[in-house]
């Protein structure tokens, strides 16, 4: 597939994208990509709207704040926070693996699953503190 079709010198790029099967590590890898790119689009979009409406003044900001506490807004912001904590945890797993840790199958599977557990727990803790303060 990705074996560059643009001439003799083309290098094979990511040749194994279509060769995989489900497993904790594969799921974590896919979710790392999904949460990262989701954050990049929705999360940074929300951050820039927040800054933009703040700079535009109290009325614009009030509209943003009203959306944030609406049911749709709640779904969006819970989604952003989950994507953040999920990407944070799987990112830390990446950094651990970069220094050579966690490659044994059992350890790797355990950290892959814990990544998602911690991601959800941190999201719940964040909203619990936010709503109960």
């Amino acid at each position: 597939m990705a074996q560059g079709a643009t001439g003799k010198k083309a290098r094979p790029l990511s040749p194994h994208l279509s060769i995989w099967r489900w497993g904790p590590a594969m799921f974590t890898s896919i979710m790392h990509r999904v949460s990262g790119n989701g954050l990049a689009v929705v999360g940074l979009g929300a951050l820039l709207c927040w800054l933009g409406t703040l700079a535009a003044g109290p009325e614009a900001y009030a509209k943003y704040a009203a959306f944030a506490v609406s049911p749709l807004g709640r779904i969006v912001f819970v989604g952003i926070s989950w994507a953040y904590f999920n990407h944070l945890c799987s990112g830390l797993r990446h950094l651990l693996m970069d220094i050579g840790g966690g490659f044994e199958v059992k350890t790797n599977n355990m950290w892959s699953i814990l990544t998602h557990v911690f991601g959800v727990l941190l999201t719940v803790a964040f909203w619990a503190i936010l709503l109960l303060r």
Binding site: L44, L47, L48, L51, G52, L54, A55
Partner: peptide, 12 residues
């Protein structure tokens, strides 16, 4: 997008 973000912060 990044410049917009930094600019709004500077403006504020």
């Amino acid at each position: 997008a990044a410049f917009y973000g930094v600019f709004t912060i500077a403006r504020l």
